[in-house]
Design a protein around this nucleic acid. Structure first.
Lengths: 207, 207
DNA sequence: CGTGAGATTGACCGAATGGTCAAATAATTT
DNA sequence: AAATTATTTGACCATTCGGTCAATCTCACG
């Protein structure tokens, strides 16, 4: 009766396999640039079998984006108003950078969606994300008023954290090409750089 | 005889119209996600007419990317080793941000290409761009050694400038949604924020 | 073992895609 | 104005696309 929840082990395994393959493909080519044949090949099963587990290409994509939004908002949720301001923000930066390292495909999936005008997650952006940003901006504003961190535009501070950290996932290819060999791991240097950057930004003339 | 250069006025006008339309479409949907029908409709001419001026979909895309690379490298070229370090870098940031405001589609076209693994401009990235970055990194390194700016990783400094400025073009939709109304212009605040950010980053403990 | 529900796929469909071609139209030249 | 050349497009083609379907295969359970 319930068509949505995977019940048997086979169903669980296959939906997971499909979503994994779809993430690989969608994150690289975007929704319209990806084909069910690509996904089915990546998943190692026939195209009709994909559509046995998901009603359509769009349903697969939608499921991925749904899961993504949770993962995506989580690090910001953890920004604790009662914590030590500098440490809270620097930890947030580190968590976001870690996500770029560990889940680059998710980052690219998100980037693709936004690049195309957020046609499928515009609601979540204007709703959940905006609300969360409003809330956390007030927290940051409070820290500024208390003199705990230097004065900055809170919303643009968040934008800067997103862009700087996601850059290492979304533009990974460029980063590695510019740095030289492909064997190079940019992340240690990136973390050190971002640490320095945000420390200097937030500590400025805060004795 | 010469099939590459637009000679007559009609040719010049039409190739320009086509490239303009193609930029609009490719920048939103990426190469594989865009269709010749979309482009021909956006250009206000028939599909066979597109292919009268360009041999293929790929040729249109390639032409756009070629033009783009010049535009893209130009601001960094202007970073002057003999100028005042802080002003040079801040001017570079402002130029890049201005490009995000004035040429957001070019930025998205570039982002799409990199997201897909830079299959068509990988060469230019490993060649021209890497060389330019190597050169300018030495300049920045020199400024650091002279004590003109605070110590930072020059390459990651450049990455940070790219990511922060391009974010306002590539993620424009998200930025506007999070900030509230669509009538809001994020750029004045963005410029002020980036000014502050890089000033604090580069001035730190440089008496 | 048998059987029936669940899982899998080859063959196929209509629509869309990149691209061709011949015929028509508009400029340009003589 | 006639002839030549450049431009434009409707009709078409082969391929690929998302999706369907009927026919199989598999496997848990009696």
């Amino acid at each position: 009766m319930n068509r949505k929840k995977p019940n048997t082990r086979i169903q669980q395994k296959n939906t997971a396999t499909i979503l994994e393959a779809a993430l690989e493909v969608f994150s690289q080519f975007g929704f319209r640039g990806s084909t069910l044949d690509q996904i089915s090949e990546a998943a190692g099963m026939s195209k009709p079998n994909l559509l046995y587990y998901f009603p359509s290409k769009e349903a697969i994509h939608a499921t991925l984006l749904e899961e993504l939004m949770e993962t995506w908002l989580d690090p910001l949720h953890k920004l604790n108003a009662d914590g030590e301001p500098r440490a809270e923000i620097l930890d947030y930066v580190r968590r976001k950078l870690q996500m770029s390292r560990d889940f680059p495909r998710e980052s690219r999936l998100f980037a693709n969606e936004i690049l195309q005008g957020a046609p499928r997650i515009g609601g979540a952006i204007q709703g959940e994300l905006k609300d969360l940003v409003d809330e956390k901006s007030k927290v940051i504003e409070g820290w500024i008023e208390e003199g705990k961190i230097a004065r900055v535009n809170p919303r643009h501070l968040l934008f800067s954290i997103w862009s700087l950290t996601q850059h290492y996932a979304d533009f990974d290819v460029q980063v590695r090409m510019v740095l030289g060999g492909e064997h190079v791991d940019p992340f240690p240097d990136a973390e050190a750089f971002l640490d320095t950057l945000f420390t200097r930004l937030l500590d400025a003339h805060t004795a």
